[in-house]
Amino acid sequence: MDEPTRRDTLECMLWAGTGLLWSVVGGVPRASLIGTAEAATAAAAGFTFAQVSDSHLGFATPLYNDVAGTTAEALRALGSSTQRPSLVLHTGDVTHLSKAAEFDAAQQIFGGSGLEMRYVPGEHDVIDDDGRAFLERFGRGAGPGGWSSFDAGGIHFIGLNNVVNLQAGGLGQIGAAQLAFLEADLRGRSASQPIVVFAHIPLWTIHAPWGWGTEDSEQAMRLLARFGSVTVLNGHIHQIIQKVEGHVAFHTARSTAFPQPAPGSAPSPGPIRNLPADRLRSVLGVTRVSRVEGNRPLAIIDTPLGA
């Protein structure tokens, strides 16, 4: 097997919109197009989980006028696929305004999907109550701070909350209490166990002027440095961006509601306004991750709702 060069990796990122399989081999990402034999092998066996993000239930503009519909479609596609995931992570902004009716809609769509769900809050889910209402409904396994960890399929999952107590001019924030939890949670754990960290705001700085990063993410990454396979899954920016650093693969997911512009490419991070309506489904979607049997790396596939 050839290991791709850094340049190959960057070129592959450009293909993300059409669906790519990522498998991290020895800390180096290998990308292959969905539909190839190689991709099929990586995704076929073992434990599979998926990521959905930024459903923003309650949001509506003339262009993005059916976010409940596109979100439900994404969940149906996951539930009915031959690679039905054992687990679905929602990386936040479940609702648009933290309203009871929006939480109700979320429970119908996600709870009604029959899929095993785990959630972390986005800043839209913690409006005016620091997330109490959200955590009551969606914070299974999480304490009042909104963080949790659990094991599934041999992977150790850690859900972090980096959307509360944000400071003027700052980015997302994990905070001292949550970092202490992370340190205790990882202590004594075997470095060969794959780790998946999921949180709403990206745990690496994608574009600071838009707040697309987390103040104290480096402290978290230092605690994770000794692990051989770390996958970091984030939402918030409504588009796919990937980066690999050593044994750590960072990945942001598409939204199931509306797309946002590439970092710095527009005056503001607001929803893309000039998207042709027939392209909508190609910029919304879900992410699937597989753990191949044995002590192999995780493989990541992004699937748009439509071409």
């Binding site: 933290s98 800043e123 409006i127 944000l166 003027a168 001019g169 980015l171 002027p209 838009w210 707040g211």
Partner: peptide, 30 residues
Amino acid sequence: RTMGTGEGFSFTFAEPGTYRYFCSLHPHMQ
């Protein structure tokens, strides 16, 4: 409180001074 589209908030500034503020949902908004 957090304002949805079309909502508003008022505050009367009684005292002279420099009042910096931000959006706690998007703290880069200052």
